[in-house]
Design a protein around this nucleic acid. Structure first.
Length: 260
DNA sequence: ATGGTAGGTCTCCTA
């Protein structure tokens, strides 16, 4: 049975429970992966009344937090604490069709792209290197990886490649690290398989005077799949309009459908 | 070159 999956950095699931409900009502993805829930699991709002009774989540007070909300049964298959940060940045679940879904919130990495001057940047690179080694050692099959990876890898994933070369999220060292992680797992970038050409963003800063008019976006949110199921993916899209909702997240949700 | 906005553990940290 085909299923539609969405990934969305919600930037506080408690503050934006209403927006989650709106997305669920209007778009009804079978599986919704959230990042930056900023909530302990026991304080997460319930979306069971909208049909999302299956939840696999990790949380902590105030920061980070990831959740997989599903209309179909999920089995919790664990989490990883890459770079030993003690943060809730990954959780994985197996859908009732056997597909494993990894939901990641990769560290943003601070402002200065130099690990000697900025510990957070080093942690981001370490996190990606440990992801790479994990997937290299245990090559995934029948799996999907989604989340806020906090890197826009392609020139057309940012509003200005040249102006962002030294800005954390688009530096060559980060792009290389993300590429190595992708290659280690054999991951196919499903969004770019479906939308191979043109500028494509999933995040616009809160700090812009008019985010829509300025359109200085970056594609930080990703949907990847292993080669055995990537061919079943189609209809990828970024719901840019969601960024324009009342009291929005600074990220728009990214969708894909899999005929499996 | 600077500062701009937003959320939560809220006068400081993270993004």
């Amino acid at each position: 049975m085909p299923f539609t999956l969405a990934t969305w950095n919600i930037n506080s699931v408690r503050l934006r429970a209403g927006l989650v409900e709106k997305l669920m009502t209007e778009e009804a993805p079978d599986v919704l992966c959230l990042q930056e829930c900023k909530s302990p699991v026991e304080k997460m709002p319930s979306f069971e009344e909208l049909g999302y009774g299956h939840v696999v989540a990790r949380g902590q007070k105030g920061y980070n937090g990831v959740a997989i909300l599903s209309k179909r049964p999920l089995e919790d298959v664990g989490d990883m604490d890459f770079a030993a940060l003690g943060h809730a940045r990954h959780v994985a679940a197996r859908l009732d069709n056997g597909v494993v879904i990894h939901n990641f919130y990769v560290p943003a990495g601070g402002d200065v792209p130099d690990r000697d001057k900025n510990e957070k940047f080093g942690q981001k690179l370490d996190y990606l290197a440990e992801m790479r080694d994990w997937f290299h050692g245990d090559r995934p099959e029948k799996s999907i990886l989604v989340g806020d990876l906090n890197i826009a890898p392609r020139e057309d994933d940012v509003w200005s490649h040249k102006q962002l070369l030294k800005v954390v999220s688009h530096t060559p060292v980060e792009v290389e690290a993300l590429g190595a992680t992708q290659e280690a797992g054999g991951w196919v970038d499903v969004t770019r398989k479906d939308i191979p050409e043109g500028q494509l963003y999933s995040w616009w800063s809160y700090r812009a005077r008019d985010w829509d008019a300025a359109d200085k976006g970056r594609r930080l949110d990703h949907v990847w799949a292993t080669p055995d199921i990537a061919g079943a993916a189609h209809s990828s899209r970024v719901l840019r309009a969601v960024r324009g909702w009342d009291k929005p997240s600074d990220h728009a949700p990214v969708f894909a459908t899999f005929d499996l």
